[in-house]
Design a binder for these strands. Structure first.
Lengths: 168, 168
DNA sequence: GTCTATAATTTGATAGAC
DNA sequence: GTCTATCAAATTATAGAC
């Protein structure tokens, strides 16, 4: 994976987290990176393949981070809350897969598969940690909704208010 | 408000709930209603004004429904859970303002104001019903996230799993 | 690998006839 | 109020030079 390809994925991730799949264009990504849109197509043939690649990388990174921190013996719920919280307070944008999931009928099958994978793996991992299916779904839903509210209201503290109930 | 204008808003609401603001076009709306896109522009000068009008109507309807049911003496949390649940099980799509909020950087100021109003009024109403600010934010976040998960996983029961903890 | 140039389509929006 | 016709701009994507 070249530096340019990684820079393209970084730019796409940022754009998608703010404006969703239909909210970014190859020309915008190219401008962010400092190349022309034809060069973006050299690295990612289609917009769908770029979207899918970004969602896949996001899931890998997210789950690896969770895995590592849980292995350190930290409380599972706390690890999940902090993973989302860091992202929100870092740049005030949505969860990438949350932003894509909210407009799922706007996604091609290729992208949708990757987005679903994020939520399926997430629930699976929470259940493995000992939570019931109900509790796992509640935790993931609350964190996604908490990011959505904090994001649209431009009030990061809304995330903490919404997530507080998970820690008790 | 003419029948055509209402039909246009209905079509736009359905499209936005599935694919977000950038996920629908005037031509698609026109085809849904059975007119030409120029006629859509006659009723709504710009896409932004249509988006704002649809979000405003959605908020009015939603809050009126909540108000009516709470006045009947029903449990407040249960009223909110059922309001979202009916919508999801009705057509398996997102909350309109949730779908818009998830890609908030893709919205014009005109639309964003209406979307924010939905969440601000919602929190206000929950607090008026006796919930703490924290609890109100938790309830709204959980319900939006529950719709998002159920929607993207095509599994309505995920909503019930996520929302179950609110009723206990 | 990146560029210029361009094709093919879609988009929001407008002018003017009826 | 709705239509046909059209515009200007933006979109994804490709061809071919360097």
């Amino acid at each position: 994976m070249s530096d340019t390809a990684e820079a393209i994925m970084d730019a796409a991730e940022r754009r998608i987290r703010g404006a969703g799949y239909s909210g970014f264009s190859f020309r915008e990504i190219a401008a962010d990176v400092g190349v022309k849109s034809a060069s973006v197509h050299y690295h990612f043939a289609t917009k769908e393949s770029l979207g899918a690649a970004v969602a896949h990388r996001y899931t890998q990174r997210f789950m690896s981070s969770i895995e590592r921190e849980v292995a350190e013996g930290r409380d599972v719920i706390e690890v999940w809350v902090q993973a989302f919280r860091r992202s929100l307070y870092g740049d005030g944008k949505m969860c990438l897969c949350g932003a894509l999931a909210a407009t799922s009928q706007d996604l091609s099958e290729e992208v949708l598969i990757e987005v679903r994978r994020f939520f399926e793996l997430g629930l699976e991992r929470l259940v493995e940690s000992g939570l019931s299916q109900e509790r796992a779904t509640h935790v993931l839903a609350t964190l996604e909704g908490a990011m959505l509210l904090a994001n649209v209201l431009s009030r990061p503290s809304a995330f903490d208010e919404a997530a507080a109930a998970l820690s008790t």
